[in-house]
Amino acid sequence: MSIDSQAGWEPKIIVFACNWCSYAAADLAGLNHLEYSADVRIIRTPCSGRMDPMLVLRAFNRGVDGVLLSG
C-alpha cells in the first residue's frame, strides 16, 4: 500500500529527540531551510536515555501512526 493511494491522509508522527543531538540537528535542518512534512511533531527529551517504552506505547495507544526515537 503506497501513501499516494490514500490522498489526503495526514499521518501523525511523533519524534522524541535528544536535546543535545537530534533536537539540535532539527534546529540545524531549520537553519538550512530543509523542507519536510508538516505531520511531524518533535518532543524534546533531555537525552534518548530518558525514553521510556511506556511513552511509545502511550503514543500508539492514542492513535499515533509512527514514532521516531532519535538520540
Binding site: K12, I14, R41, I43, T45, P46, C47, G49, R50, M51, D52, P53, M54, L55, R58, A59, R62, G63, V64
Partner: peptide, 30 residues
Amino acid sequence: GSCLPACRTLALNLRGFSNDQLVSEVDAVC
C-alpha cells in the same frame, strides 16, 4: 533521565521532564 526507564516502581522522576509532563505532551499531540 536514563535512570527513569530502569525504575520498576516509578520512584524515580526527572524534574522538568517528568513522566506526567511527557505523557501530557504525547496526549496533546494526539
